[in-house]
Simulated assay, not measured.
Amino acid sequence: MAETAKTQFVTADNGVKFAYRRFGKASDVPIVHHIHFRGSMEFWDPLLVNTIAQYREVILFDNAGTGQSSGNVPTTFKGWASDLAAFIKALGLKQVDLFGFSMGGIAVLQTALDYPELVRKLVIAGARASVPEKGPVEGIIWPQEQNPPEYTTKLAYAVTAEEGKEGLKYACFPETDRGEAAFNEYWARISTRTAEPLRLDLLPMDPQGNNQYVALVDALTPQPNNSFDRLGELKIPVLVLNGDADMVVPTSHSYELLKKVDNAQLILYPRSSHGFLWQYAKRVGEDADRFLDSVDFD
C-alpha cells in the first residue's frame, strides 16, 4: 500500500528519470495520480489512494522537475501533458485512468485532450479548465469567478517545511475546528510512511515552483486552442470533484466542466474547501472507485 510501496525509477524517451510507486490490486487499466502545486507524491493521502487501490492498481509519480524526478517543470500545461504521456509510455502502458488534483487536475485534463488514445477515464479534483479565448460564453456565469489570492500566495511564499505545512492548511481547509481537525488527521496519515524516509518539504519556488506558476498564468491567459475551448472534444467519462466552498479553485469552475463536457458528472462535498479529498478521503476514494467501475457514462 502507499505507506510501504518502494520508490522506483524509469527513464522516458524525453530524457526525464521519473520517480514513481505502484501498488494495489492488479488491473488491466491502472490509475495514475498527478499532484498539486509544489507537491510531490509524498502528499497523496494514504487513506484516499489505498481505498482506490483495493480494486485497481494505483500509480503515484513525480512529474519532471518535482520530487525525486529529474528534469525541469515545463512552463505550459501542454508540456506537463507531454511529460505525463512520456511517463505512461515509459511504463509500457497502453491505456490508463487519470486522477489529477489542483494543478495536477489541469495537467490530466490537458493530457486527455492531447493524448486521447492513452486515457480511458478522467477524475478532475479541485481543478478547472483554462479561460476561454473569447467571452462571455453561453451557459457559463460571466465574468468567471476569481479566487481570493491570499490562499495561493501563502502557499507560494512558504520557505520552511513548517511554513509549507501551514500554507497547505490555510489553502486547503476551512478555518474552523472541523477544518483544523481534518488537516491534522491528514498530516498524521501522510506521516505514517515507513518504506523510506519522509520527504514532506514543498517544491522550492526557485526555479521549479516558479515554472509551475508560469504554467498557471499561461493557462489563464486567453489564447487559441486552450483547454476550455476544447472541452467538447472529450468523449470519455469524466468525474469532477470539489468542495462546496473551494477558495483556491472556486467551485463554480467545477460546474463549468460539468456544463461543457458531455460525459461528465459532478460531486461536491459539504463544508469543505480545496482539501476536500483529504477531509473526505475514504468517501472520495469510494466515489472514484464507483465511477471507474461504472458503465453508466461509457
Rank of each mutant, 00 (worst) to 15 (best):
V119P: 01
L200W: 04
F77H: 06
T75F: 06
A107K: 05
A86Y: 07
A85Y: 11
L239S: 03
L118G: 02
E185M: 02
Y55S: 13
D296C: 07
T66R: 11
S102K: 02
W278I: 00
T11K: 15
S130T: 13
I59S: 05
L113M: 11
G179M: 05
L122F: 08
K154I: 09
M41I: 11
L118P: 03
R21K: 15
L98S: 08
S40D: 11
F276M: 11
W187T: 13
Q265Y: 00
R189D: 12
L198G: 10
P148G: 05
R199L: 01
A81E: 09
A5S: 14
Q95H: 06
A245H: 13
S40E: 04
G232S: 11
K169P: 05
V32G: 01
S191F: 03
V16S: 03
D83E: 15
V123R: 08
P222R: 09
R230Y: 08
V108S: 04
L84W: 03
Q68M: 07
C172I: 00
T221C: 02
N263I: 02
R230E: 12
I31M: 06
L292R: 10
K260Q: 12
E175S: 14
A107H: 05
K259L: 08
G232Y: 12
G209V: 09
R22T: 14
M103V: 14
